[in-house]
Design a protein around this nucleic acid. Structure first.
Lengths: 275, 275
DNA sequence: CAAGCGCTGTATCTTACGATACGTTTTTTA
DNA sequence: TAAAAAACGTATCGTAAGATACAGCGCTTG
């Protein structure tokens, strides 16, 4: 039983009363910096009183607060001196602690962006920046939340954003509103959904710009798409990972916000006023 | 002229008298841990007297010793969050190709998992693995899609999963179904939503296990939560990033699936038959 | 070599930080 | 449901830690 403070906490957090557990969680969330501050600051960050902090460190086995801080400092000193934490080398220690799926996800994100060119990003952002274009978003069974996430942000920085929800028939009815200068963003990873393919084909026939977010094996919708972003989805798990597409979505939101800076800033200000 | 303390020192060390220079060297030698200790300890380690230490920090431009320590702590907090900036040098390799927000997101994910213990994951998975427990998910303005994503998967591998949608009043009506052995998963990052807090408080009063997914500054809901997962959300963008929480969600889904392997496999097979 | 200036340490003071006693509220158990 | 136990926060206290005044010493310079 090593005496790393963090390990002490995860060992004993179950036996702690509510207030002390809050202290523990606050410390873990910003480990270890909060513990180096004064009791008053620590207690405020954790939302409890000073005595609760002191009872917390006492429960961890320390005689007093300075002793607790000394332990954190020693730990920190050891950590900063070990060359392992330098460079970008993968930490040997905590491999196995982090599930393999997370490691794979990180690599998926990196690999995804290796295959997305700056020009492609610029082109997509340019499409989305057109103020007169209507923008529609739709996704599949597991990817629709990503579409929803993107829609939630887009709605704020520009007008005419619609997330298509519910049944396929609902989407189809919206086709009537789509024209040549409009944009549809479709999220579709395997197993690819027939309904999305049918919808994409009809949208394509109306001349809409289709931006497809799919996996590396490319949904058949790629056939109709103006832009295709292929995210890596494979992880050692029964499920595919949509994390790479999620990060792509966030990145596009950020880039578009920058591009529309002046206009969206004004728009956001107006929104605040309406509250 | 950034005010990194280390840079300040190397800038001004030449203009310092002998005693203060010894202080500077001692600090640089075990940077920054010595500076976090008391003036007395610092002075002893440097082999000078206390007032010399105080004159030293005054020369660096700090009004008093606590202010100096606060600067070190802030620096440390920033450093621990993005080891990329370790040596102080900017990233050499892939600048320009990958947007900075993506790099930050990758680091956020890594850092998030650095603060999540294996035990905590196991505990949460154990809660979610109870077949008789009802599981509810709810999120805020931008995080609700993450809750939805998780719900979409959970629904498949276990029964009694419900995503709470729509108005706050809708959620409240579901409180009636929640009991001591049930679980509520809440996603809440700043700006924290009052409505979620109110809901969490009432759920807590009913004895429900609350699992909170928040940012590193901890939503006030942490007060009521049995488990708190603090994801890093800061990116160089006007928006916060929920990607780390998204990856946490995927990881939990994967772990739970493994845990429920036999049962969920049977369940999935039955589902296939129903198509 | 002597005089002046500046740096440093000792001693003292003051503040604010950690510790604790106690009353109130909450939770648990009979 | 009531009684007992535990936990939490408020208010207060003692002390340790940072700040300062001042004297001694060394170093530089004329």
């Amino acid at each position: 039983m090593a005496h790393g403070v963090a390990e002490l906490i995860s060992d004993r957090i179950d036996t702690m009363p509510a207030g002390e557990r809050r202290a523990a969680q606050a410390l873990v969330a910003n480990y270890p910096v909060i513990g180096l501050k004064t009791v008053a600051e620590f207690s405020q960050a954790a939302g409890v009183s000073s005595p609760t902090i002191l009872r917390f460190v006492a429960r961890l086995g320390f005689q007093n607060y300075p002793e607790f801080q000394a332990a954190l400092q020693d730990e920190l000193a050891a950590q900063l001196q070990s060359p392992a934490s330098r460079a970008g080398q993968p930490q040997p220690s905590r491999q196995g602690r982090t599930p393999a799926t997370v490691e794979a996800t990180l690599e998926n994100i990196r690999e995804t962006f290796r295959h997305v060119s700056a020009k492609q990003i610029a082109d997509i952002v340019a499409l989305l920046a057109q103020p007169k274009a209507d923008v529609f978003l739709v996704g599949g069974r597991f990817t629709d939340p990503v579409a929803r996430y993107m829609a939630a942000h887009l709605t704020i920085i520009r007008p005419r954003v619609q997330h298509l929800v519910g049944q396929e028939s609902n989407w189809r009815d919206r086709l009537i509103d789509m024209g040549k200068r409009d944009v549809v963003m479709i999220f579709d990873i395997r197993r690819y959904q027939e309904s999305l393919l049918r919808f994409a084909e009809k949208a394509h026939q109306r001349g809409v710009h289709i931006i497809l977010f799919t996996d590396q094996w490319l949904s058949p919708i790629a056939r109709f798409a103006r832009h295709v972003v292929a995210g890596r989805t494979a992880v050692p798990s029964p499920w595919d990972s949509s994390a790479a597409l999620f990060v792509v979505a966030e990145m596009l939101i950020g880039e578009l916000t920058r591009r529309l800076e002046s206009e969206s800033a004004r728009r956001i200000r107006e929104m605040e006023n309406l509250r």
